[in-house]
Amino acid sequence: MRKISKIIIHCSATPEGKDFTVQQIRQWHTTPKPKGNGWRDIGYHFVIYRDGSVHPGRPVEQIGAHTSGHNANSIGVCYIGGCAPDGKIPKDTRTPAQRAALIRLVAELLRQYPAATVHGHNEFAAKACPSFNVQKEPELCGR
């Protein structure tokens, strides 16, 4: 098993109020460039749907493809949403069910990997993702 030192939170950068699935994200990630990323699988290890259900993506045992330079020792968690209805403006679109599921999932991951720290993708890249400040949510960071 990989040594996990970070749990990194992402958004799918999709419009508020619209549902997307692991399979759709997998398709985006595996479609060859220039239309997709050209990866071998979905980049995230977990995806949280708008209804709060948590779905597996890439197996945790495998290195993800979600945060350049930090994939080897991290787990990527993505919630569906992250943009205003126009699909362009970053916005924290987490539903109450997604917020609760994210807190539960991260708590479970921190139990499994007690040395891990929790971060937003925006801490490692010039992006708005996950469209909120993870460090300002102590219930997510295990504090």
Results as ranks from 00 to 15, higher is better:
G52E: 11
R50A: 14
F132W: 01
G64Y: 13
H66L: 02
I103N: 03
Q98T: 09
T31C: 04
R99M: 10
V22E: 06
A125K: 06
A65E: 11
G36Y: 12
D92E: 13
A84G: 08
P85H: 11
D19I: 08
A65N: 13
H119M: 03
G76Y: 09
D92K: 10
H10E: 01
R111C: 01
P90K: 12
T67G: 08
L110M: 11
S12C: 04
S68T: 12
A128I: 00
L109C: 07
D92G: 12
G52D: 09
K3E: 14
C141K: 06
Y113F: 15
I42N: 05
D92W: 09
K6I: 04
T117E: 13
T14E: 01
N71F: 05
A13C: 14
E108V: 09
G38Y: 07
P32R: 11
G64K: 13
E137M: 10
L105A: 10
R104S: 13
G43R: 07
R2K: 15
W28G: 08
E108T: 12
Y49N: 15
V77K: 05
S68H: 10
I42L: 13
T14M: 01
Q27V: 05
Y79E: 00
F124R: 04
A72I: 14
Y44V: 03
C141A: 03
A65I: 06
S74P: 11
V118Q: 10
G43Y: 07
K35G: 02
S53Y: 06
R104L: 02
S131G: 13
Y49I: 04
N133L: 02
F124Q: 07
R94L: 02
E108R: 12
A125G: 02
E16V: 10
F20A: 06
I9E: 01
C78D: 01
S53R: 15
G142T: 08
C83D: 02
I103H: 04
H10T: 00
I89F: 04
Q62E: 14
A116Q: 11
K91P: 02
P90F: 12
